[in-house]
């Protein structure tokens, strides 16, 4: 099982995501943003957190137009699994692989703290290890995590059970307390909180390890 971790200039959670992949039995391979294709046999693509291109222009906007993102979009269109965390989520919406946008936090400040959430759906390769309504905590660390979309899109996300996680104590003003969403085929997950920062007791929690274990299980079954 192989997981590609895309490295943009300014990515800074690429190693952390690789560690989480490896701990779940997914062999990580680092892929440079200037590459035009994914390595053979990649089962899941991870877009890591950080400040790709310094967050200049708009968070994720320049990275979404990197050469490698064409290959990532192809992978997603073919039904491949993609997880985008924090800046990776911003890249996914900028690339049009997920709907909506991530605006500046309502409080206008960067926020780093543990974010308690409820699992909104267990129906995805990423969330099948949880039960719906289960409380989980991953740390957040972002300046632009205020999820928004037009009313139709929000209604569709709800109606199609595509909200993956909702904040219990909305830290950033996100519409519908949305912390993470799934694509139509449920194979692309974007979320602002960092599951890879909650995979080991020394980090203060292991709720995130469940996500990566479920993903590894789903990929193995596929």
């Amino acid at each position: 099982m192989r997981g590609a971790v895309i490295v943009f200039p300014g990515s800074n959670c690429d190693r952390d995501l690789a560690v989480a992949f490896r701990a779940a039995g997914i062999d990580p391979v680092m892929v440079w943003h200037k590459d035009t294709s994914l390595p053979a046999g990649v089962d899941v693509v991870g877009l890591p957190g950080g400040f790709s291109y310094g967050d200049y222009l708009r968070c994720g906007a320049i990275a979404a137009r990197s050469p490698i993102c064409v290959a990532v979009a192809d992978h997603a269109r073919r039904g491949g699994a993609v997880i985008g965390i924090c800046n990776g989520f911003q890249v996914l919406v900028e690339a049009g692989l997920l709907p909506g946008a991530l605006m500046r936090n309502a409080g206008l400040k960067f926020i780093c703290k543990p974010a308690p959430m409820t699992v909104a759906t267990a129906d995805s390769p990423f969330t099948s290890g949880y039960t719906v309504g289960q409380a989980v905590t991953f740390p957040i660390a972002h300046h632009d995590g205020n999820y928004t979309a037009d009313a139709d899109t929000l209604a569709r996300l709800d109606g199609e059970d595509r909200v993956a996680f909702r904040y219990m104590d909305n830290p950033n003003g996100s519409a519908g307390d949305i912390a993470g969403i799934l694509s139509e085929n449920r194979r692309v997950l974007g979320l602002m909180p960092h599951p890879e920062r909650a995979i080991d007791p020394a980090q203060g929690g292991t709720d995130g390890a469940v996500l990566f274990a479920a993903l590894a299980g789903a990929l193995a079954d596929a």
């Binding site: 957190g49 960092h194 080991d200």
Partner: peptide, 17 residues
């Protein structure tokens, strides 16, 4: 001082104990 600390990423690199 949470008002201060929460504006700093204290968790990046995944090793903060």
């Amino acid at each position: 001082k949470h008002w201060v600390w929460e504006q700093y990423d204290s968790q990046v690199m995944g090793d903060t104990a």
